[in-house]
Write a protein that binds this DNA or RNA. Structure first.
Lengths: 206, 206
DNA sequence: CGCTAATGTGAACAAAAATTCACTATGCGG
DNA sequence: CCGCATAGTGAATTTTTGTTCACATTAGCG
């Protein structure tokens, strides 16, 4: 059975989306040309009409990931202010856990970097971009008084990621058994102890 | 040239050590039977005299990792008390960064788990063991008054890992450019704000 | 000193995966 | 409606890697 003809722009999107979904659910090494092709409904050789090779597909996956993550961050920034925005980011990360789990899967893949160092640079840019924008959120919290002024925004941003990462690791290893949301909520309490401005008569969103 | 004959017990250790060093420095997918064999100074086929296959080698690598990490933790536990022990763990993690970087590399490998789910369980046990022992350190700190009593030891343990993980990720991505030790030190300051007992006239080791 | 079990080796094999290519089908513009 | 550029396909190729096996060598032991 032959697949219907589609414009290359359409196929490129389908292929990148399929590849991301495979990486997110089964890991990078499971992302073979054959599997991506099957998910899209094409023969493996057809992918080469739309991408130069596997690495080009992976490059597109990284772009997709970049958009999703930073989009998520922007949404949190607009939906709440100060400390609450940080809280929202953390909660949304849990919701996006599949895609966020795909990040370390790529970061520590090594299958990639040996052959395509430019992807490593791209990933680094994404990570740097993420922490930088998180630091901006922290600074905004300092300006409106919900975050104590003596914390380093850069550090507070990294720690927010750190409040999530180990939980995601355990969740990943446990095969879904580990109570991800609960552990993240607990970590948020701890995180708030570190970064929240001392409460006078201010009320928290909780 | 033929390698000298060695007892299988010796070879097993050499092979596991070589494999770990490759995983730590170049990643899991770089750990091929051929490369391990070359590092030990044997022909690839010789490895099968000592291990059933690649997965058995990886299993031994996990054991090695387990010993190193928990050994490191035990050393920190004995060298300092309370909060200082936690600080020491963090600093030692930086020193052990290569091997600690090997952990996420394995955790998120997926190349492994699809074929050998029991390795995933083993990795999970290591991670659970690590956080549990860290939680014990936290509890000890609470007993001697250096850690505030209202934090969850489990959460504080996870967060300590989280104070290190994102820094290691950036360091890994930056190719060594990122100031790992500096970022971790900064995060420690933040971490201490969250978990340290309010200072009355108590003096810190810093 | 010689036997035997253990260890080492190269060649061959199998499996998986990325990529190429000659060829086929299709849909859109004129 | 026709033709051509575009998209799709299966088969073949190449590369990499794990594994097996028949044979060679060695070290320890009686």
């Amino acid at each position: 059975m032959r697949a219907a003809k589609q414009a290359t722009a359409v196929r490129r999107e389908q292929i990148a989306a399929a590849a991301l979904s495979i990486v997110a659910s089964q890991g990078l090494s499971a992302m073979t040309v054959a599997r991506v092709a099957r998910l899209v409904g094409l023969a493996p050789s057809a992918l080469y009409r739309h991408y130069a090779g596997k690495m080009a597909i992976l490059d597109a996956v990284l772009d997709l990931l970049h958009d999703r993550i930073l989009g998520n961050l922007a949404a949190a920034r607009d939906a709440a202010g100060g400390l609450d925005a940080l809280h929202l980011v953390l909660q949304r990360q849990v919701a996006l856990v599949l895609e966020f789990t795909a990040i370390p899967r790529i970061i520590f893949s090594d299958e990639v970097y040996g052959k395509a160092p430019e992807l490593k640079a791209k990933m680094h840019a994404l990570f740097a971009d993420l922490t930088e924008k998180l630091a901006l959120l922290v600074r905004r919290g300092q300006e409106d008084g919900s975050v104590r002024p003596d914390v380093s925004p850069r550090s507070a941003a990294l720690m927010l990621v750190g409040a999530f990462q180990p939980c995601a690791m355990r969740w990943h290893l446990s095969g879904g058994t580990f109570d991800l949301a609960g552990a993240v909520a607990e970590n948020w309490e701890l995180y708030r102890k570190a970064v929240a401005a001392p409460v006078k008569e201010k009320r928290d969103s909780q």
